[in-house]
Design a protein around this nucleic acid. Structure first.
Lengths: 237, 237
DNA sequence: CGAACCCTTGATAGCTATCAACCTGAGTGG
DNA sequence: CCACTCAGGTTGATAGCTATCAAGGGTTCG
């Protein structure tokens, strides 16, 4: 199986065989973690840098009244908190949404990459900037788009992100999220997610069944969502 | 007048007199730009790194239907797009909301800072991480908080951010934003901003008049907004 | 065969948007 | 000096999206 980190970083830099070898060395040791586990909690001091090899992880916050706000998804190939050691404590939590395979990297491993492998360093920077761009685009969704377009937009984003790590094919991918998780992500209620999803299926926009999302007509869904892949910067290099 | 960049970065690193001197040298040459001007547009190739000395700048996106979504505010001391040259083109635009004084820095200036001034480099990293944390907190606001709490939360955030650069005093600061700008930021309509503001004034939470925000009881407003300053990481160093 | 979790459905309420006027103050030009 | 314009703010009425509450159905699993 190919290394999802390599697949992703190829979009951010022109890697050499040496670079790829170094990246492959990274993922020799990984942990298996079941679904629904906290990786780190709010206020914890950050320690490791994490790389997702398999599964879905989310960043989230819990509000006073118990509401959960999901702030980001991490999918295979995603690295979290490259330089988070600079901050004393986490301002949010992270948890697995599915069973996951995760690599925990010590800070000096990152230091080695950024100082001795300039193309990898460049790609890691690119990846950090894309993460911020995704946050901005989510902000636009929550601020301006109605519920159905929010869902559609998220589905389009995940399609592209999962395609880069060869988890999605042309028009479908495994989406092991509950409607509750989608609701907490999009800022709408679970009931409303359910209804919007039904409407979208009725309209032939998507089919979401058995934890797999199928998009009959990708262009149509992008059109519906007002999706412009620009912000993912997949032509980064 | 003290250098807002220095004031800010003191929160992210223990600076030496030499560091401060270097930072002061940065701001010797600045540009004056009037209100309502685009600094850069979506799809433009990024060129300069910008540092705000005076005024309010915003990041924004325009949707197909003409809606504007304001994604971030930059206030004095804020630096934008430290390493954005890695990306080919902007995925959003930036514009002045008020008359501004801005420093445009060439990439090699940044390179000098990050390679020869480790404490400044550390502080710049800290600042980048805080920017991302602010995006996440805004996402929580848009996803989970009702309109009045969104407004209150934003007011609390700006109070702290502007206090670090000595623009805000204990409980008030200049806020040169129109209700329309607030609406585009918080994802609510202008009319609703107006009404919520009136209600908040009636409740004694804030007074917003003549482009100045006064908070009679800061603790009360924080309480109302569910504001936890943790995410600003002002105790970074 | 419960228990637990997730999904689904119906009814009702409420927050917020939209539309349309009107008001106000500042700047402009005749 | 006054009419005019324009941006920004204010107000009222109405509609609509989405939340909430409550209950029921399907699956998995011990």
């Amino acid at each position: 199986m190919s290394n999802p980190l390599t697949l992703k970083l190829e979009h951010g830099s022109k890697l050499t065989p040496g670079d790829r070898q170094r990246l492959d060395a990274l993922i020799q040791t990984s942990c298996r973690i079941e679904a629904g586990q906290d990786l780190i909690r709010e206020n914890d001091p950050p320690e490791h840098v994490r790389l997702i090899l398999e599964g879905f992880v989310c960043r989230y916050k819990i509000l006073e009244d118990g509401r959960r706000s999901i702030i980001a998804y991490l999918v295979p190939g995603d690295i979290c908190d490259l330089h988070v050691a600079i901050l004393r404590r986490m301002d949010h939590a992270m948890a697995t949404l599915t069973p996951c395979t995760i690599v925990f990297m010590a800070p000096d491993v990152i230091a080695d990459l950024t100082t001795n492998y300039p193309r990898i360093a460049h790609a890691l920077w690119w990846s950090t900037l894309v993460d911020a761009a995704i946050l901005r685009e989510w902000l636009v969704s929550l601020g301006q788009r109605p519920a159905d377009q929010r869902l559609a937009h998220l589905f389009c984003e995940l399609l592209l992100r999962l395609q880069t790590v060869r988890i999605a094919d042309e028009n479908s991918y495994p989406l092991p999220l509950t409607q509750e998780a989608l609701a907490d992500t999009l800022g709408i209620s679970t009931v409303h997610v359910n209804r919007v999803l039904q409407q979208m299926r009725e309209d032939g926009l998507v089919v979401f069944r058995d934890h797999r999302l199928i998009i009959p007509d990708v262009e149509q869904l992008k059109e519906f969502a007002g999706f412009d892949s620009n912000y993912l910067h997949l032509d980064g290099m």
